[in-house]
Design a protein around this nucleic acid. Structure first.
Length: 399
DNA sequence: CTTAGGG
DNA sequence: CCCTAAG
């Protein structure tokens, strides 16, 4: 969105912005990129909790146009595409972006123009919030993409610890999903690439992952600028729009964003000859806690609810995942209780063991909601009655 | 799409 | 985790 003509270097006057002192010479572009990004993250992070980047967008855009009229990202990306868009973008930038609603509408327009499919439903869309990056990673049938995976993965390979939302957000792909059809519908993606660039940047906003992001992005941005082009994301507008929607509706504590970098994707042979991917995302304690609390609040079984409210920040983790995890937790909680002693010695429980307190909480909840696995419950009720006011108790009539 | 279960 | 059947 903020993309404008990169040929305008007037911004050199404002080199001090963002606490970064910039030179006016060759490094110009570099610095500008940097500053832009840092600005983004600063604002985004700062406000991400309440009003989100809505206002940010406004401000930033205004700033950009006022200060320079040139936009960092454009300088880099522009080359590969975008011409027609420059005009539009520029204009929009100059006339001070209107408030949220309007903004969304604009996006919607674009979407409808290009895809004609789902655009309104925030819920639906929000799922894809971070899907963009994934798209790159799954070049597969996509015409334009080839040899992308390398590029997108590059950071994780680098081992430099660099993790950009861009790469990390891989959607547990249901390969089909609605996005394939979309591709067919939009053969030309000229302006999209541009926008995508933006979204790529923006995505780093919600990431909120402390200052690290700043540095990381800064570090890599020079060489990185090329990526977006290569890995043009087909349906980016969605994301840009979505993100905003997301931020608007969401004020939950988002702390899921910790471990995104690593995606363990293992291909598993399937009977039908196909090869399906199996993603593995070790559940963090944090997530487990959120799950448990979610169950506590909304009841087990209301997974879509829990998903929306407690896991809004975790695009991965579908409601099904929650359910599965809960099932596992349940099992674990009951298995571990009787033992208590053995567990400590038993191996290095690969991956986080799940704190006992949590497990007991799980058990408690299960108890409350009458989810005690029949077999186990039988065992327990007969053998132990220690801290259990087991059996009939309050079936708080949740479900 | 959301749940519930099985694999 | 994935897949599928049911609602």
């Amino acid at each position: 969105m903020g993309l404008t003509n990169s040929c305008d270097f007037s911004c050199t006057t404002f080199i001090i912005r963002d606490n970064v002192v910039m030179k006016k010479g060759e490094e110009q572009i570099c610095h500008r990129v940097k500053s832009r990004i840092s600005a983004d993250t600063e604002n985004g992070v700062a406000n991400s909790n309440s009003r989100g980047s809505l206002s940010d967008h406004d401000n930033r855009i205004k700033d950009d146009s006022d200060l320079s009229g040139a936009d960092v990202s454009s300088s880099a990306f522009e080359s590969c595409n975008v011409t027609k868009d420059l005009n539009t973008e520029q204009i929009t930038a100059k006339r001070a972006r209107k408030p949220t609603k309007r903004y969304i509408e604009e996006l919607s327009e674009i979407e409808s123009r290009e895809t004609s499919e789902k655009l309104a439903l925030p819920d639906k869309i929000s799922r894809y919030q971070f899907a963009c990056p994934e798209t790159h990673i799954r070049p597969t049938k996509n015409v334009r993409s080839n040899a992308r995976p390398l590029v997108t993965r590059q950071d994780s390979l680098g081992g430099s610890g660099v993790q950009i939302p861009f790469v990390s957000r891989i959607r547990r792909s249901r390969p089909r999903e609605n996005f394939m059809p979309l591709l067919k519908l939009q053969p030309s993606g000229m302006d999209m690439a541009t926008r995508q660039v933006r979204s790529a940047f923006d995505i780093s906003g919600p990431q909120e992952d402390d200052k690290r992001n700043n540095d990381l992005i800064k570090t890599r941005s020079p060489g990185w600028t090329q990526q977006p082009l290569i890995a043009a994301c087909e349906k980016d507008e969605h994301y840009s729009g979505m993100k905003i929607v997301e931020l608007e509706n969401d004020v939950e504590v988002n702390d899921c964003s910790e471990d995104n970098s690593d995606e363990n994707v293992v291909t598993v042979p399937t009977q039908k000859g196909g090869m399906r991917r199996k993603h593995h995302r070790p559940w963090t304690i944090n997530e487990v806690v959120k799950l448990v609390e979610g169950v506590a609040r909304y009841g087990a079984g209301r997974w879509s609810e829990i998903k929306r409210l407690a896991f809004s920040s975790c695009p991965y983790r579908t409601s099904v995942d929650l359910k599965d995890k809960w099932r596992n937790l349940l099992k674990a909680s009951f298995v571990q209780l009787p033992a208590e002693k053995g567990i400590l010695n038993s191996r290095k429980q690969a991956s986080v063991p799940i704190p006992a307190p949590i497990l007991s909480r799980v058990r408690e909840l299960a108890d409350m909601q009458g989810q005690i696995p029949p077999v186990i419950s039988a065992c327990k009720s007969s053998g132990h009655s220690s801290s259990d006011r087991s059996v009939h108790e309050a079936r708080s009539g949740f479900l």
